[in-house]
Each structure stands twice: as structure tokens, then as C-alpha cells.
Design a protein around this nucleic acid. Structure first.
Lengths: 296, 296
DNA sequence: GCGGTTGGGTAAATTATTTACATGGGCCGA
DNA sequence: TCGGCCCATGTAAATAATTTACCCAACCGC
């Protein structure tokens, strides 16, 4: 009973109550049984409620939770709430989220499946992402004079996102959507430049050509791709791997785009952190700049 | 917010707090931020504790939780406990992921924090997303003659993403980045048209103007925003709410963009599913079309 | 039947919460 | 620049919850 400490470390209230049961006196036991019968309801009752429903007094309720090991009633209450929340979650895993989306899915199913898929894409990518490589990429971009970014289709949007972000902390970067313009810019890079290519498959010719041009010009090349051993991956100096789940509606490219965004965010925050004060001040300025276009 | 009912049915406290944030007064917001910074700790604090730590008074704490939609403090407390229990189970969360990113974080920490933040943004959004509203939006877009999409900054990228997706299944849609062009196109909409606006805050003037123009022209208007009670939300016929976590590096807009993407994906898949065969065949064609630009 | 022990409760003390009301600072019109 | 008004916030009183102090009754062994 000496483990006061607020009770938050306690494992499983219900188990403790159950094991204390034999040592409880009748009126305390009545309370215990009430709690065990419906813990989530109990969590929402006051001491007085509990006492009344158990046909006893508030004092007995107090004695009950002290014997179970709590120093205060709200500690018990919170633990009860936590534990029931945990259990309801465990029973709540929506069936079939792994499957692809089909005609019989309700909109609710679709939302669940997409949420699951995208969540997993992020989690997997976080796991797969090589922090050393990320550090190299951060270093390269931070010290770069100019960063050219290229991707087509969905990858292009991710590239634009990175460009917007880098720009906002005062770095010079360009995101190209036209392959010719991208090639031209890449050709003008030098040893102080960086080229970033975004492609899920890593097989898009234009994207590979872009990195090749940048490499030929002497720049550091970075690839964001799901397939490190693709043409793109083999070309790049630094490969940042995504781990997207591309199940539902394959061509929607939902998981891959989310995973790429996540990598780009890490890249951005890593770069911003290296010059923290300058970045924060730049972000403040850029934020303030758009405030005039906002309503109250 | 009509779901008082003691709070036990409430979806995701943190989401509610976050979306109420802009409408809170400074001292209330201090409390809100304290809670968001460490919800599980907040669950164990009394009103007085919270007031003291927030440098304000108990009254402000009361006003805070009333605005967020709770009728009593213990309701909030319990929900906080439930939710943090759920989250810590969902992805046995490394310590400190709630905090903002700071100079002492390693790259590994950064990756963890971003992954957690984005994962939760998706999960929260999935929970908060109103399926009926989504169905209405899907219906409107599916039967629309033309869909105009507008957003600025990060919202613009999300809009482009939606445009690309709709286009790929053969629907006529445009994503505008220039506000004048957007207004012009919106003005030409009619009852068969749909306008989609993407804005986290819902307060960007250009975006609101765009929806107003579309509405005046007779089109169905859809808003994707974190703040349903913003100017944008009040303007739109259909509001699709996101529930982004905007903690780390606030202006990075990472959580909001991910959440918006997720909503857009649901919209897209919903629309695609309504005409499943046509969509799948269109997707095959568009996929095949870009194969020629790919390497073996 | 009498001291002591055990179970249980009443009511008072303490602490937490909610509500009512007061204050002060900023903004707008004159 | 002044006065009034409103908004944000706080102080303090009222209420409701909790915890503690203390009391009573039943039972048990002698």
C-alpha cells in the first residue's frame, strides 16, 4: 500500500481490485463488485453515487480504494477510465482494413481503410528511414548554395512542398515540374549544389535524367523513393527510403505520397533545426507576412 | 457541440481543444496549450494546479473547459485519461513526442515526433470526419459538370492533388493557385458546379472570397478546414473537418497538410467507387499512359 | 455481562468545483 | 483627450466533493 505515487504507474486496476477482494469487508466488497461489474460506469460516478448504489456510505468507499492501494479517489477514477479505454480500443480493431477497397465498402469503411493505410505508411517509413542518410541529406541541403527539386505527378507535389518549406526558412531552392527546365537548372549546379528527386518507383526516366545531369555537374544528389535499388536509387548519392503501402486503389498513390511527405518533413525540420534561431525567426516573418490576408 | 451527454461519447478531446483554440481568449489558450503539451499530466491535475501552472485563475480554467464543450471538470479529466491511454497503447509512444521540436533533439527524435504527430493527425481526422457530409461531397463532385478547387500555400498543393486525382478518373476539375483566376472560374459555375476550398485556419480571405463567388453563382460549396466555425466553414454548404496536430514547428503546417490529404483521398476514393468500373478502367489507362516514360 | 475488537456510519473538516460579481485596460466615438 | 463601453480576467463567495475524526452497535471470548 506504500506505492502511493499517484497510482498512475499501477498495472491494471481491475486485477488489483479482484485480488484484494477476499480481504475486503462486506460493505467494501459491495463497492468492489459494483466497480468490477461496470468499470467505465464507475469511473463516472462520485463517491456518493457509488456509496448509494452499493447501499453503503462514502466512508466505506474511501476505505475500499485505500485498501486497493490508491491514495485518492480521483486516482482510482482515472485508472478506471484509462483501463476501460484501453480495452474498448482492443476490441475495436476494424475488420478488413488490410484489404483493398471494393464496391461493397461503405464510406465509413473507406475512411478506415485509408486512415489505416496511411498511418501504416508513416509508421513503416519512420522505421525504415536511415537516420545517417537523413543526416547526410540535411547537411548537404543546409550548406547548399542552391537546391533543385524534381518529381513528376504526385512526386512533383511533394517536391513543391519541400521547396515551399525550404524557401520559408530562407534557403534558395527550386521545384521544377517541367523536365526540360529541371534539366537546365540541374546542369548549372556545381559542387555547392544539391538535387533532390522524388519518385515512388524510382523508374521515371525524366527523374533519373534529372539526377544524372545534376551528378554530372558535380552536385550532391538525393533520392526519395520506395525502391532504393531502382535506377534512381542507384544513381543518387543519398537515398532516403519510403515504405509506403500501396494497396488500396493502387494508382491513387496515396500511401506513397504520404510517406514521401513525411520524409520531406523530416528533412525540413532537420535543416531548420541546424540553424534554429534563424529558422524560427524566418518562420515568424513568413507567418506574419500572410497574416494581412487573413480575417479576424 | 451538441453532444454534451456527460462527455463519454465525445470523440477525441484533444481534437476538440485544438479546434477551439482560435476562439479561446489568451488566458484560456494558455490552459489549452498546457493540456495539449502533456494531456496525461493534465489529467492528473486539479483545476487549481492547472490555473497555477498556466499563470492564470481557476475561473479561466472553467471557462476553458466549458468552451471546449464539457459541463464539468471531471468529464474533461476522464476523457483526457481515456484518450492518452488509447494513444499510448496505439503506438507505445516514446517519451516527449508531444513536445515541440527543440534544439536538443536528435534526428531520431525528430523522426519520431513527426511520425507520431502525423499519424495522430490522420487518426484524429478519421474519427472526426463526418461520413454524411463526406457522402454529400462525394455526391456533389460525382454529379458535377465542373469542379473548381482553390487553396493557398500548403492548401494549394492539396488542391492540386485532388485535381490530379479527379482528372485521372475522367472528371473535369481545375485547381487554381492564382486568386483572380480562381474567382473568375468560380463566377462561371452554375448549379451543376462544385467549388472546393482548402484552408487549415479557414480565415484566408482569398479562399473565403472564392467560395462566396462560387456560392453566388449557384454552385455547391465544399470546405476542407480544421475550423468548422471559421468564416470559410460558415460559408460552405458542406464542411469536411480535419483534426490536425500542429505542435511541432508550427508554421511547417505538417499535420494540417497530411490531414487535408487524407480527407482528399477519402473524397477521391468515394467518388471513384461510385462509378467503380469506369474509374478502374480510367485509372488503368492513365497508368498505362505514363509507362512509356518509365524504365524497365 | 463485560472489555475489547471489528465493521460500519454520521457528521465535521478540508479541499475542490462552480458561480456571481468586480476590476481594469483598451478601443471608439465625440 | 475624454468618457463610456466592452472584453478579458480575476477575487471571493457558494456549493459540492473528498477525506478525516469520531462514534455506535454487534459480536466474541471469557
Amino acid at each position: 500500500m506504500e506505492e502511493a505515487l499517484g497510482g498512475q504507474l499501477s498495472r491494471t486496476v481491475l486485477v488489483r481490485i479482484r485480488s484484494a477482494l477476499p480481504s475486503l469487508r462486506p460493505s467494501e466488497r459491495a463497492i468492489a463488485e459494483l466497480v468490477l461489474a461496470d468499470p467505465s460506469r464507475a469511473a463516472m460516478m462520485s463517491i456518493a453515487d457509488l456509496a448509494e448504489q452499493g447501499g453503503t456510505s462514502t466512508t466505506s468507499v474511501v476505505r475500499f480504494y485505500k485498501k486497493v492501494g490508491y491514495s485518492g479517489y480521483s486516482d482510482l477514477r482515472l485508472d478506471l477510465a484509462r483501463e476501460t479505454a484501453r480495452e474498448s480500443l482492443a476490441n475495436n480493431v476494424p475488420a478488413g482494413v488490410y484489404e483493398d477497397i471494393n464496391t461493397s465498402d461503405s464510406l465509413r469503411d473507406i475512411v478506415s481503410k485509408i486512415a489505416f493505410n496511411e498511418t501504416m505508411s508513416i509508421a513503416d517509413t519512420a522505421q525504415v528511414l536511415d537516420v545517417d542518410k537523413l543526416a547526410q541529406a540535411v547537411e548537404a541541403i543546409s550548406t547548399s548554395r542552391k537546391t533543385d527539386i524534381f518529381g513528376v505527378g504526385a512526386g512533383g507535389l511533394v517536391g513543391e512542398d519541400l521547396q515551399q518549406k525550404l524557401h520559408r526558412i530562407g534557403l534558395t531552392s527550386f521545384s521544377w515540374s517541367d523536365p526540360h527546365a529541371a534539366l537546365a537548372s540541374a546542369a548549372l549546379l556545381d559542387g555547392d549544389g544539391v538535387a533532390v528527386a522524388v519518385s515512388h518507383s524510382g523508374t521515371t526516366m525524366d527523374t533519373v535524367d534529372f539526377l544524372l545531369a545534376a551528378k554530372a555537374a558535380g552536385a550532391t544528389t538525393i533520392a526519395v523513393t520506395n525502391h532504393a535499388d531502382s535506377a534512381l536509387g542507384r544513381t543518387a548519392d543519398i537515398v532516403l527510403s519510403t515504405a509506403a503501402r500501396e494497396t488500396p486503389f493502387r494508382s491513387g498513390a496515396m500511401g506513397s505520397r504520404i510517406a514521401q511527405m513525411m520524409v520531406v518533413d523530416c528533412l525540413f525540420v532537420g535543416v531548420a533545426q541546424r540553424s534554429y534561431d534563424a529558422s524560427v525567426s524566418a518562420l515568424k516573418k513568413t507567418h506574419a507576412a500572410v497574416q494581412s490576408r487573413k480575417l479576424a
